[in-house]
Design a binder for these strands. Sequence first.
DNA 1: AATGAATGAGATTTCATTCAT
DNA 2: CATGAATGAAATCTCATTCAT
Lengths: 203, 203, 203, 203
Amino acid sequence: MPSQKSNATSATARAPKRSRGRRRVEDLLNAAVTTFADKGFDAATMTEIAATASAPIGSLYQFFPTKTALAQALLARYDAHLSARLDAICDSATEVTLGEFTSLLLNVLMSLEVERRCAMTLLEAHTVPPDCRKTLRRSLRTGTARALRARAPELSDDEIEVAAVVVVNAMKAMVHMGEEADPVRARANWHAMVEGWLGAQCH
Amino acid sequence: MPSQKSNATSATARAPKRSRGRRRVEDLLNAAVTTFADKGFDAATMTEIAATASAPIGSLYQFFPTKTALAQALLARYDAHLSARLDAICDSATEVTLGEFTSLLLNVLMSLEVERRCAMTLLEAHTVPPDCRKTLRRSLRTGTARALRARAPELSDDEIEVAAVVVVNAMKAMVHMGEEADPVRARANWHAMVEGWLGAQCH
Amino acid sequence: MPSQKSNATSATARAPKRSRGRRRVEDLLNAAVTTFADKGFDAATMTEIAATASAPIGSLYQFFPTKTALAQALLARYDAHLSARLDAICDSATEVTLGEFTSLLLNVLMSLEVERRCAMTLLEAHTVPPDCRKTLRRSLRTGTARALRARAPELSDDEIEVAAVVVVNAMKAMVHMGEEADPVRARANWHAMVEGWLGAQCH
Amino acid sequence: MPSQKSNATSATARAPKRSRGRRRVEDLLNAAVTTFADKGFDAATMTEIAATASAPIGSLYQFFPTKTALAQALLARYDAHLSARLDAICDSATEVTLGEFTSLLLNVLMSLEVERRCAMTLLEAHTVPPDCRKTLRRSLRTGTARALRARAPELSDDEIEVAAVVVVNAMKAMVHMGEEADPVRARANWHAMVEGWLGAQCH
DNA sequence: AATGAATGAGATTTCATTCAT
DNA sequence: CATGAATGAAATCTCATTCAT
């Protein structure tokens, strides 16, 4: 008796056990990334994602029991990537100039073009549960706060909090400016603006 | 995304002739705004929009032959609103302080909460044709450029172009910061940052 | 964005407005009756039911937004039929012999062969919500109680209650005995047994 | 009801060789009993049954190559149980009063609550092949006939045949009356009714 | 012109069964 | 043997759009 759509309120991805399975999951995730990035969450279909990965639809559902679970897994993967980048910035925070530090921060979101577009799409999709969306946002903000604290330990918690919000939004703008004409100059100006403000803060 | 039976490649909104019709169109647009803002473009259904406006579904299709045409009309309406605001800024550009000017610009997107959320949703929706999305974006950029030129006529066309891109993205960030904790302080910092940069440019 | 299976917890059948619609609903209900009776609730598919009625699947869902709603409508229709029969018995309860009265009661379920098989199938189906099932059962019991009270007003409420339970189960057995070899003699015996007991009670 | 990949028209349960296997089969059967009783044949899934028995799905298919075969095995087991009870009644048929005899017969189906609910579910399921269903029914009828013959050897074969049909249906009613309000009085009345009829027959 | 019932392609999800490991 | 990941046919339900009334 098919029909009961996933009754579990929060279904999560199942981990593969065999080595072939792990490879297959990799393919499925990549297929999902490009499909979501291209079509958006709602317009992308599970059937198309499976087809893109040359996998039968049943396999897709073996690992991701729900379209939502698939989105969640993707966001988690991207979250891990961002955290790693931010951790790296923490490590070198005191060994670089302010300009370099600004650059590192502002470029956090600029790697992995497709994954980022996918993540941004999912973050905007009203159909994706707010939980996962909030998780990624918070993770990005706290990671940025960590980097700022590593660079400017003299700032209070509140100041760090607010600065992190500012910087995160500056990061996002960097990405969006790529679609405009002459993105190089636009980003250079943006960089200057943020560096100026950061310099004023940190002192 | 069910079957699109419409084969017309580009359907646009039809203008109503009588005053009763104009009132009805108004209601339909408003219903569409809230529905799109709440559910997103894909999840919102034409039936629900008509119901929200207490209008029969046939009426909705009378004026907006396509879901896409409806989105387009909404974006056009919002575009007009933004242009008006930017025009007003042009007029007073030379009579205000730099801080006030910055404030005016950064707050351009902060009015009409629901309409803005609707517009941003539609701008992200991959299902809405890129044309209308590009139109609104360009309109916002050129309007901003006009305001900047009114304030700083000494800048070259290129410089204005780039500055407009920067400012537009700064405007967007103002909106996004509203969802974070302590948006007041975040926005104040942001304002300071942009004012600093604007001051450096304009001279 | 299809996918959200009927989120309304209890969807009910929608009434048709046009005359063609009423005819169509009739056809759909009849198709559903035979299909459920033949295949059972779970094995019967909405697609097959629509096809049997030569109706597009969309039309089926127009009137019965859920497979469950369809079952409910069927049970309600059968309920109405049974109530009518029991009311008729009430009217003639005092004008017939005990044997005739027994006969009338025991034969209540023996008309409308297919509808009855459909109803019994639905009553057993674990997938049909208990509510509708209980409704029909109670309706049958209270209708029978009414008939018994009309015949034997001297009995207490409790006695009527219990007698109704007994008689209802006797009715059901009448139906089941139809599948055995020599159903005529079996039913005659059954009739004698119940009549004997009824005679002993009523006095 | 998803695709039945099994092309074997009639698959039956395989007997286990080792004692550990016999234990496992026992667990699987018990898990199947409760699952079928709770969810019905169609809604119960092989995966869930295996999980309930804490057995891998492969093991389940080792012993019962088909969902149908599993149902068949369950019905056979229940058949054996009923036959044993009826045999016991045969043995004591001449040593008890008519009231006791009636009681014994009417209570045949009242033991093993879950197994019985499972069996009744399977008997109603249109998806279970008619063969096994008929087998159990016939077995119950012939067993009952045996008991009646042991008690009343003077009756002709035809009379026994018909009486068995009547008694079997009386048994079933006893079970169904358990769900109504005041089942004790209902059953007492039922008992009186059947005893009265049996007395009239046997003489 | 106005209405809203009718349509059907297509989306998500399930699960009996197999077979590689 | 034992296991449980893999498969894909098939089921339920949605909704943009049309067109008869």
